[in-house]
Simulated scan of single mutants.
Amino acid sequence: MNWLDRHGYSLNLVAVLLWPLSLLFGVAVRGRRLLYKHGLLHSEAVGAPVVVVGNISVGGTGKTPLVARLVELLREAGYKPGIVSRGYGGQSAEWPRHVTVDSDPSQVGDEPVMLARRCRCPIVVDPDRVAAARVLLETYDCNVVLSDDGLQHYRLRRDIEIAVICGSRRLGNEACLPAGPLREPPSRLREVDFVIGNGAARSGEYLMSLRGETAVNLNDPCVSSALTGFRHGTVHAVAGIGDPGRFFDHLRHARLRLIEHPFPDHHRFKPEDIHFRQDLPVLMTEKDAIKCRAFAAEGCWCVPVDAWLDPDFEEHFLKRLAAIALAKGIRRERGKPGRGAGTHPQPDVSRE
């Protein structure tokens, strides 16, 4: 359990002592947003509709699976989406970087590589998301930009903002850093276009659920097993995500017996992190598998999850985007029915 998990999700002495610093932090982020809002700091448009998927809290809320689902949804509606990301954790000496299924997650970040494998669409990463979006549009035949995270990256002008909230942890003690987990005050949620509740939704929010009932072998992706097949014994559960407990709860919901191994978000895994004395299956998240596949043993499996969204959200989101695309002169092809993205032509993303 990290520091924020211990102190940021309840009212406790540490949080109370840090509250004055949180108030100053909140004033600073509000002031920065007002400077952009009134044009004193300049935001830049990139010529195509920009949809930002982010959150106001530190840690994982399920943004990346939502982005993957939005790629499918946009393709079904006849758009040509591409993704930009900061590439958190990437150590590349040069930016921007074009991400492919074979990209090194240590260079471009784990989540972009996971999205490349899942979505098979153009992805460009750069700490400067404006530069990433411009390269994306100049290089590939995209007409919608999805920003994975970046709700606070105001220099990239956005047309639609989607904020994701963890349905169980919510906003913690509702304090900004360092007393709480928030990057911006709770009032920021009133300004976004859509609020998605991952696992549970309150009034004014749309529900998202993550579903994944199959494990895929890391050594041979053609080999898979239903999670129910692991009920006969105990498994090692490995998670290096923002909220490891969410993954562990997912496995427990499938009635598995776990030995939990939580790691920090974006952890750089080493062989000893997933090799244990007990000869038991090792189950991990899809994001962690991206970094562990090269040294995974035969008994290592990942559990991919898909985001399932409230149909009302999908309808309202597409209507909002259609109006924006029309105003920008963006034309789209006739969409194809079906949830899967595999039935759609894939753009060439071979450039690294």
Rank of each mutant, 00 (worst) to 15 (best):
F269Q: 02
F269E: 05
F269I: 02
K270P: 03
K270D: 12
K270C: 15
K270L: 15
P271Y: 00
E272A: 14
E272W: 08
D273C: 10
D273P: 08
D273V: 03
D273E: 13
H275N: 07
H275K: 06
H275G: 00
F276T: 07
F276I: 09
Q278G: 14
Q278P: 03
D279Y: 03
D279Q: 15
D279P: 01
D279G: 12
D279H: 14
L280D: 02
L280G: 05
L280K: 02
P281F: 09
P281Q: 10
P281G: 11
P281S: 13
P281M: 12
P281C: 15
P281K: 08
P281E: 07
V282A: 08
V282G: 05
V282C: 10
L283S: 06
L283G: 01
M284P: 06
M284E: 04
M284W: 03
T285P: 08
T285A: 15
T285I: 10
E286V: 07
E286R: 08
K287W: 06
K287E: 12
D288I: 09
D288G: 15
D288V: 12
A289G: 11
A289M: 04
I290T: 12
K291V: 02
K291E: 07
R293G: 01
A294G: 01
A294F: 07
A294I: 01
F295C: 01
F295V: 01
F295S: 02
A296D: 05
A297Y: 01
A297N: 05
E298P: 04
E298R: 12
G299S: 14
C300I: 11
C300W: 06
C300P: 04
W301L: 15
W301P: 10
W301V: 15
W301I: 13
W301Y: 11
W301M: 14
W301E: 11
W301D: 15
C302I: 04
C302G: 05
V303T: 09
V303L: 08
P304L: 10
V305L: 10
A307G: 13
A307L: 02
A307C: 12
A307R: 01
L309Q: 02
L309F: 04
L309R: 05
L309A: 06
L309I: 07
L309G: 07
L309Y: 01
L309P: 00
D310F: 00
P311T: 00
